[in-house]
Simulated assay, not measured.
Amino acid sequence: MGADTAQPPLSDPDLEHLLRPLFAAAAPEGGIAVAAIRGTERTVACRGYADRAGERPVRADTRFELGSVTKTFTALLLADMVARGEVGYDDPIDRYLPAEVLPGYPHERPITLLHLATHTSGLPRLPVGLAPAAVPRWFTSPYATFSAAHLLRALPRTPVRGTPGTRVRYSSLGAGLLGLVLERAAGQRYQELLGGRVCEPLGLVDTSCGTGRDETTGYRRGRWIPSFKVPALPGAAALRSTADDMLRYLQAHLAVDAVPIPERTGAAASLRTALREVSLPRVARRGFGQRIGLSWHHRPAEDAADREVVFHSGSTGRCTAFVGFDRAAQTGLVVLAGPLATGRRRFAQSAHEALRALAA
């Protein structure tokens, strides 16, 4: 496969057929970028436009909002810091947060960093007190005015359901709080910490929290959608990236020992250890037939009982993203889309099917 960032069909007819449902998912005013890995083959294919006027075709370096796929980067940062001995998976959050901002515990068992990374903290999906600011702009930029100061004021009023570590309850609050804890442990802002520990070593040159060049512009039903901002919880959903960068991200997870990482003191060894750690399943998700690793979801491969598909999806008002891989089959898929013509659930299902077909 060769890189293809223009509009013509892919040179591989089988791959063109496999990806057609994903290309069809993009709305007329949107665009889509797909990166695929199959063994030693790599390709990036793009369709549609990054602007409503149809003047900027989507390319391999067009930036899309990743939404909750950001959580996998935060988990990788956690694993790297554990490998360096800077934090521990079983560290309680009160080691890094002052007592006056801790959530109230119904049990004596504290919330740990591992609980935050595996969605077993018992924290709610979203912060307490978010609704008044979020509801008026729920379909545009619901978190834009909810700051880190708001979050710290809300945490003491935040309920913890059940005993931490006993049940999976998906929590963007927990993932975002993990990012805040890692900031405090390292003494650096999330963006700088992630950039220096993950993005720069992996060669992810266009992956960051801030807006930049060649961003997709978002319209839904003719209405302009502003760029996504989540100042209180960047570790949960703030990242933007490109198909080119996400292809490198996939490669790093599929071939840990082969990925080129600059040999700075401790950097290469700790990051390789982290890349192995994040894709290990940790806890079962009851009733879903899935397991959870460090943020990543695990689902058994349909054609082989001894293999698992590892994946995560995310969405913002503007964009929808899917990232998944099958390490045993050495296949991976990234799909970054602007406004969709189909529902997000149907889009995610199409991405799952395409990933399984790649492995087959």
Rank of each mutant, 00 (worst) to 15 (best):
L336A: 02
G176E: 04
G48S: 10
G179E: 01
A351T: 15
A99K: 11
R42A: 00
E200S: 14
I261V: 12
S208D: 13
L152C: 11
Q251F: 12
P260N: 07
P156T: 04
Y89H: 09
D257M: 15
T265K: 14
P201I: 06
D14R: 09
G314T: 12
T74I: 04
L22N: 02
R189M: 15
E41H: 06
G343Y: 02
R299H: 06
S270K: 04
I32Y: 05
R346H: 12
V44H: 01
K229Q: 13
G338D: 05
W224N: 13
P21K: 00
T112C: 03
A60Q: 15
A50L: 08
R356A: 05
Y170M: 05
H352F: 02
D214A: 13
Q251P: 06
Y96S: 03
P300G: 01
H150Y: 06
A75M: 03
R344V: 11
E200W: 11
P9K: 00
A357H: 12
T112D: 01
T273H: 15
A328E: 10
L151M: 09
F311K: 07
P124A: 10
L18P: 03
D94W: 07
L193D: 01
V160L: 02
A35M: 12
G30V: 03
R282G: 05
A6K: 14
A360P: 11
R220T: 12
P300F: 01
A284E: 11
S11N: 09
R59C: 09
T342Q: 10
P201K: 05
P13W: 00
E108R: 13
F325H: 13
S208P: 14
W296E: 00
P127A: 03
L15D: 02
F311E: 07
V87S: 02
A305L: 13
P234K: 07
A3R: 13
A99N: 13
Y190G: 07
A27L: 05
G48E: 09
R137E: 15
V205Y: 14
R220L: 10
R356F: 04
L294G: 03
R276W: 06
R56V: 15
W296P: 00
V82Y: 05
L340T: 11
A175L: 05
H312N: 04
P124I: 10
P136W: 08
P142W: 05
D306V: 08
G210C: 09
K229P: 10
A83D: 07
V230T: 07
A60K: 14
L180H: 01
L247H: 00
R56W: 11
L151P: 03
L114P: 00
A337D: 01
R153I: 14
F73Y: 13
R153F: 15
T273S: 14
V309T: 14
G338S: 08
